[in-house]
Amino acid sequence: MRAIRCNQYGPPETLTVEDLPDLEPQAGEVVIDVKAAAVNFPDVLIIENKYQFKPPLPFTPGSEVAGVVRKVGAGVTQFQPGSRVVAYTGQGGFAQQAVAAASACVPLAEGVGFAQAAAFTLAYGTSHHAVVDRGALKAGETMLVLGAAGGVGLAAVEIGKALGARVIAAASTDDKLAICTKHGADATINYATEDLRERIKALTDGKGPDVIYDPVGGVYAEPAFRSIGWRGRYLVVGFANGEIPKLPLNLTLLKGASIVGVFWGDFARREPAHNAAAFKQMVEWIGAGKLRPYVSAEYALEDTGRALRDMAERRVVGKVVITP
């Protein structure tokens, strides 16, 4: 089988395509013929050794896949060869075959495309955990989403609307904001051309948002947090900007506000029952048309480096996938 390999930490251009032996499942595992593997910002950080998860070299990046079960290991009864599944693998996704724990696989209905399915797990899992569990967003409240045109950002916009909240989307271009509006955003902020604090103030009648969803970090974090409403919840989701901000803690005192960390991967591992309940709710929302995973581009396996470069340089809208 062909696979992307990270043999040394570095930029996306250092990745190689290699021929590797076919995979064999261990007990409790399945081998999946990968039809689509989603690209996520942590993939960029992992290959550069800038992420909290550090697989030993060499490794194949890619953490979420959709495809068809090829082989099953001992003890696996819920799937068989030919089963359509979506799975969170942690690594190994950018390849023609991937191994996943059977417990990390979800059956995929015939009518759901592989690309859309691969784009769902991490982005929507992260955003549901953030918005519903950690942010406790309620109907009638207002949520500001920074980096709203990215995969997790668009998921947060849709989940906020599914809950009955008012959602303000912030992004760096008008084209990106147009996508956010199509996915339900009630108002928008172009933080490349508008004053973020002044625009937030105008859109919230000076009250500030109840929840701020921040997967970006960097220079927008402090002005956003200074604009948060009383008893607001600031969700720390990631640092796509590349800079980890340092917020003055006196601001939490003045607003009675909370800074809340979001780490979906560990949540799913530590609280599997709660995570399963979250996905059950989201599947119902998909059936009702409230969630619509948006895949803006598909890349061939040999173009994985370019996909990761586009992700690193914030050219991606929604999600992009690799199709081995």
Score class of each variant (00 low, 15 high):
R2G: 06
Y9M: 05
G10E: 09
G10V: 04
T14D: 13
V17M: 09
P25Q: 03
A38I: 04
A38G: 14
V39F: 13
D43A: 01
I47R: 08
F53P: 08
K54A: 15
P55Q: 12
F59P: 04
G67M: 01
V72F: 06
A74E: 14
T77E: 15
Q78W: 01
Q80T: 13
Q80E: 15
G82N: 06
S83T: 06
R84H: 04
V86P: 05
T89F: 05
G90T: 02
Q91L: 15
G92F: 00
Q96D: 15
A98G: 13
A102S: 05
S103G: 12
P107R: 07
E110V: 10
E110W: 10
F114I: 11
A115Q: 11
Q116K: 11
A118G: 06
A118Y: 02
A119L: 08
A119M: 04
F120H: 04
L122I: 15
A130N: 07
R134D: 02
L137E: 06
G140C: 01
L144K: 07
G151M: 06
V152M: 05
V157A: 10
G160S: 07
K161A: 09
L163Q: 10
A165G: 07
A170F: 02
T173W: 14
D175G: 11
A185L: 11
T193I: 05
R197W: 00
A202Y: 10
A202C: 08
L203K: 09
G208S: 10
D214A: 01
P215T: 06
G218Q: 10
I228Q: 12
G229Q: 06
W230Q: 12
W230N: 14
W230D: 10
R233T: 09
G238L: 02
N241S: 15
I244Y: 07
I244E: 06
P245W: 11
P248E: 05
L249P: 07
N250T: 13
G256P: 03
G261C: 07
V262W: 00
F267S: 03
R269E: 14
N275G: 04
Q281P: 13
Q281K: 14
M282Y: 02
W285L: 13
A297F: 09
L301V: 09
E302W: 11
E302Q: 12
T304K: 03
R306K: 15
A307D: 03
R309S: 11
R309E: 14
A312D: 01
E313C: 04
E313F: 06
I322P: 00
P324R: 09
